[in-house]
């Protein structure tokens, strides 16, 4: 089967097939023979071309968190056919990068804003975070008001870019 992952806008297709007790895995133009042992849920001991690597995996929906050799990698599983361009596209919706409380709202619906203008300020853990307009455009809708509690990933502002 072929699987696809996306990390920082880059796509990584991986081909994987069973090879007896092991797997044959293709990454880029390289191919590996891999034996895998899941010692307990999420804990893997992989023997990749004879070399042992230990890693730990946690999954959250499409998100993959992998701990390997002291580093943590966080990336997404994506559908076949996804294009890197899709990830670079200017978002029309701004989601909250953080959970916290709205302490200021800098625009109202239908406002024309400059790139970098502060739209919403969220206070979390005693620090303030400003959500700025990623480009010049029109604010279609602001979904939160002063004092609201916002969760990470929630849609804060719907925008339309000025062409």
């Amino acid at each position: 089967m072929e699987l696809h992952y996306e990390h920082q806008g880059k796509l990584y297709p991986v081909r994987i097939t069973r090879d007896g007790e092991a797997f044959s895995i293709g990454v880029g133009d390289k191919s590996f023979r891999v034996e895998s042992k899941e010692t307990k849920p999420g804990y893997f001991a992989l023997t990749i071309d004879g070399k042992v690597t230990k890693c730990n995996i946690a999954t959250e929906g499409n998100q993959r968190h992998i701990f390997i050799n002291g580093d943590v990698y966080r990336f997404n599983r994506v559908e076949a056919g996804a294009r890197p361009a899709d990830f670079d596209k200017l978002p029309s919706s701004i989601t909250s990068p953080i959970s916290g409380k709205v302490t200021a709202v800098g625009a109202v619906d239908n406002d024309i804003v400059e790139a970098g203008q502060v739209l919403i300020t969220i206070e979390a853990m005693k620090m303030e975070y400003q959500i700025k307009a990623p480009y010049a455009g029109k604010v279609e809708k602001i979904n939160f008001k002063l004092g609201d509690q916002v969760d990470i990933g929630e849609l804060l502002v719907q925008m339309e870019k000025t062409e």
Binding site: I16, V27, F32, T53, C55
Partner: peptide, 25 residues
């Protein structure tokens, strides 16, 4: 920035985990 591309080991681990849970194998 830790600015890193995904090493092969990471992709291999993800693929094995996903295949195991996909019901194919």
């Amino acid at each position: 920035s830790s600015a890193k591309t995904l090493p092969s080991e990471v992709l291999i681990a993800a693929a094995i985990d996903d295949m195991k849970h996909s019901g194919v194998v």
